[in-house]
C-alpha cells in the first residue's frame, strides 16, 4: 500500500510518516505544490493525504487536477481550516474525506484504512483479529462464528480499536470518534472508561482472544492474546 503525504510542516509530516509506517504502509512525501504535482502525475498511490495550504499553491488546485485525471477518489484532505466551504469544495472535487487539524494519529489511521477499504475491498469488508471477526458494512461481530451483541457505541469503539490494533488509542481520540465532537468537549472522560469496561466484559464472556489494555491511564490498546 503506497501513500503520498503532501504536507509542508516537516514535524507533522514526520509524525504521519512514523505512525503510518507502523501500519506497514509505504510512505512517500511532498512538501510543496510543485513536487506534489510531479509525484502525483508520475506515480499511482493508494491513498493521498493532502494539506490544503501549501507553499506554491492551494491543495484544492491539486485536487482539481486530480479530478480532471479521474484520480481524486482516494484523497483525504488535511486542513487547519475547519471551514465548511473548503470541506464542501474538497468533497465536491471528489476527495474521500476531510480531516481537521489537530487530529489524533489513531483517527488518521482509521480514516486511511477506511479509504483503502472502500477502494480495494468491494463487498466483503471485515477486520480479523485472532478469533474475532468484525464486519464493517453489516455491523456485526463474531467470535468463532458466534455473534456478539454490541450496541452502536460499543461496535464503533471496537471497530476503532481494531483499526488501530497494537497501537495506542487515547481516550480523547476514542471519545471524539465514537461520541463526536461534542462529547470530546466534555470535561470528564470517565464515560470512556465505563464503555471500555463493558466492552471488555462482553469480549471476555464471549471468550474472545483479544484484549483491551490500558495504557498509562491515557488510552487503550487492542492486542491479540
Amino acid at each position: 500500500m503506497k501513500i503520498l503525504v503532501i504536507e509542508d510542516e516537516p514535524s507533522l509530516l514526520a509524525n504521519i510518516r512514523e505512525s503510518l509506517e507502523k501500519e506497514k504502509f509505504l510512505i512517500e512525501s511532498a512538501s510543496d505544490f510543485s513536487s506534489a504535482q510531479e509525484k502525483l502525475f508520475v506515480y499511482d498511490y493508494d491513498c493521498i493525504l493532502l494539506d490544503i495550504m501549501l507553499p506554491g499553491g492551494s491543495g484544492l488546485a491539486l485536487l482539481q487536477e486530480l479530478k480532471n485525471h479521474g484520480k481524486s477518489e482516494n484523497v483525504i484532505i488535511i486542513s487547519a481550516k475547519d471551514s465548511l466551504d473548503d470541506k464542501l469544495q474538497g468533497l465536491e472535487l471528489g476527495a474521500d474525506d476531510y480531516l481537521c487539524k489537530p487530529f489524533h494519529l489513531a483517527e488518521l489511521t482509521a480514516r486511511v484504512k477506511a479509504v483503502l477499504r472502500r477502494k480495494k475491498l468491494e463487498g466483503k469488508d471485515s477486520i480479523q483479529a485472532a478469533n474475532l471477526t468484525l464486519d464493517i458494512s453489516q455491523r456485526l461481530v463474531h467470535i468463532d462464528q458466534n455473534p456478539l451483541g454490541l450496541n452502536r457505541k460499543e461496535f464503533d469503539t471496537l471497530n476503532y480499536l481494531l483499526l488501530n490494533k497494537n497501537r495506542l488509542v487515547s481516550k480523547t481520540a476514542l471519545a471524539e470518534h465514537v461520541w463526536g465532537d461534542l462529547a470530546d468537549q466534555s470535561d470528564n472522560l470517565d464515560f470512556v472508561y465505563y464503555q471500555i469496561k463493558n466492552l471488555r466484559k462482553k469480549l471476555h464472556d464471549a471468550k474472545a482472544s483479544v484484549e483491551i489494555e490500558s495504557i498509562y491511564g491515557i488510552g487503550y490498546k487492542l492486542v491479540e492474546k
Binding site: S11, N15, F103, H104, L105, L168
Partner: peptide
C-alpha cells in the same frame, strides 16, 4: 491548530 497537531502526534508516538 498545526502546532497542536504536531504536538499531539509526537506525544502519541512517544507513548507508544
Amino acid at each position: 491548530q498545526t502546532p497542536l497537531a504536531m504536538l499531539t502526534g509526537k506525544l502519541e508516538l512517544l507513548l507508544e
